[in-house]
Structure formats: C-alpha cells, structure tokens
C-alpha cells in the first residue's frame, strides 16, 4: 500500500496531459452513471415502501415517497409468518455457520501442513466436488435416507464445507503460518492438538471472520434452495421461503387485508406490503455489510492467490 501511494504522488508531480484529463473526466462520468444505475432501483423500492397504498396502485411513485405512510410496515409487523421466518433464518444461520466454520477450519489446518501424507489426495477430493456432483436427486436421497427430511438438520448438515471456502482457509494457513512455528512448538513438546488449539486458532481469527461471513450470507441467510427441497413444514420455513410466497407467488394471508372492503385499496396494500417487505428483509444484511465489507474483500483476495 505504501509503495502504491508513492507511485501515485510521483505521477501527480508530472503534469497530466490534456488527453489524460479528458480521459479522467470521462472515467468519473462513467463511474457516476454506474453508481446511479445501481442506486436507482434501490431508491425506488424504498420510496414506494413509504408511500400510501393509493399512490402505489396508481403508479405515481418514482424516486420520492408519495403521500408518506407507514401502512406497509405496520402490516408487515403484524404478519406472524414473516417473523417466524426471521427467527428460523437466524437459527439456521447461527448454528449452520458455526458448523461450517468449525468443519472448514479443522479440515484446512491439517491440509495446509506440508508434512501431512495424503494431503494432495484429500484436498483434491474436496475440490473435485466443485467441478462435479452426484446431482440433485441422489443428494436428496442421501438426506432422505438419513431421516433428515423436514427437520432443522436438513438446513445445516448438508451445507458442511464449501470447497472455495476450504481453499481460501488452506491458503491463509499456508501463507500466514510458517512451518518453523510448528517445528519450534514440536521441539518444546507440544502435540498437534496443542499446537492447533493454542497457537493456530488464535492466529486464525481473521480467516474465521471471513469464513463466518461467507457462510452466513452466501450459504444460509440469502438462500432458499435447501429449504425448497428439504422442508415441508411451514413452521420450519426460513425467511427466504416466506418472502418467495409473498413476493413471487403473490400469496398473502387474506386475514391481513380483511378489514379493507374496497378491492382496489386491498390490491394497493398488497403491493405496498411487498415494497416494505423487500426493505425489511434486506435491512439486516445492508446495515451489517459496510462494517464487514473489508472482510469480504480480504476473502476474495485470498481466493485469488492460488
């Protein structure tokens, strides 16, 4: 990083040519356009979620709330299914991530040790699952035969170890823990368990953070596929499945809309509710994300070191 700034300042000393100035202007404009394109849909959704049902159904909302109202949010807060989904998602994400991270770390450390016989074969066996899998039905059959169908276990156990995450963990251990450390500890009479628990784990904190984020967001919080194929019981549904019912399949518990006689108003609330729901469902990760962004970047960067 230090070298980077020194070269930037060197370049600044040289006067920028006219060509470069025009280029930089165009470049800035390009990035501004991209940023606006990213922001536009998000701003629209938020604006609509704070509008009145009438404004929404009349198609009047563009980028600012029309007839400011919190009705959409109030309706969501009374929707028990949504809260149940939130609770289930938190459960799956919390325990699932603990399971994933533990499994990944206890696999990655041994596989990062150059002196481990068979490490190439076992690493390849993990990586190979990134390139080829038994497929949907055979995996389903295994989960079924283990009696996990329609249980909370089905949301946790099959996720296990992501090969990409395993790779970045192995890379982390290989690049940050010198082999001499291990030899020195050995000479002092420490066993591998001891080394792992009292030296490796404390050093592994950064990679544990990265893995926890990757698993929590990518494997658990934001996915619905596992739930779609393994769960039947409504009470076990994670948030994403509930969202799918409301946002995509347009099925909203009619009791929520019962006290509204007018059909148009009812239709309006139905749509308004979706906007509010999109906001409510995205807020937890969106609030968290600026704080954890650098961990994600770190993880992606580790992944690019092969």
């Amino acid at each position: 990083m230090a070298s980077m700034t020194s070269y930037e300042s060197n370049i600044n000393k040289v006067n920028e040519s006219a060509v470069d100035r025009v280029f930089m202007l165009g470049n800035t404009a390009f990035l501004l356009v991209i940023t606006l394109i990213i922001l536009l849909p998000l701003v629209f959704i938020v604006a609509a979620s704070f509008s009145s049902a009438e404004a929404v159904i009349a198609g009047k909302v563009t980028l600012w709330p029309v007839d400011f109202s919190l009705l959409g949010y109030e309706t969501i807060f009374e929707h028990k299914k949504v809260w149940n989904g939130f609770a289930n998602s938190i459960f799956y994400t919390f325990f699932g991530t603990i399971f994933n991270v533990t499994m990944t770390i206890i696999a990655a450390y041994p596989l990062s040790r150059q002196d481990l016989i068979g490490r190439r074969v076992i690493t390849f066996a993990f990586i190979f699952t990134m390139l080829f899998s038994g497929g949907l039905i055979p995996t389903y059959m295994v989960v079924r035969d283990l009696g996990l169908l329609n249980t909370r276990w089905a949301m946790i156990l099959p996720t296990g170890i992501g090969p990409f995450n395993l790779l970045i963990a192995i890379t982390f251990f290989r690049t940050t823990i010198p082999p001499e450390l291990n030899e020195a500890a050995r000479i002092d009479g420490a066993s591998d368990f001891r080394i792992f628990l009292s030296i490796i784990l404390p050093l592994a904190r950064p990679i544990i953070a990265v893995l926890a984020l990757f698993y929590a967001v990518n494997t658990h919080w934001n996915t619905y596929f596992q739930a779609l194929i393994y769960l039947k019981d409504q009470n076990l549904f994670p948030l994403q499945i509930v969202l799918r019912e409301i946002l995509i399949q347009n099925s909203i518990d009619a009791s929520m809309l019962i006290d509204i006689e007018d059909l148009v108003a009812r239709e309006g609330l139905r749509e308004l509710l979706k906007y509010s729901l999109i906001v409510v469902a995205s807020v937890p990760v969106m609030i968290l994300y600026p704080f954890v962004q650098r961990h994600f970047v770190k993880g992606m960067t580790l992944g690019s070191v092969k």
Binding site: L42, L277, M286, Y289
Partner: peptide, 20 residues
Amino acid sequence: ITYAPHFISTVVIVGMLFQF
C-alpha cells in the same frame, strides 16, 4: 455502492424485478 447488491438475496432481487 456497487458491492451492495451482491448482498441482496435472490428472492428479494427477483421480487424487486417484479415490482420495478
């Protein structure tokens, strides 16, 4: 800003498409 949409779930993205 450009990283942000990555963290929105697929269901919400498609829901947004339907609404948008």
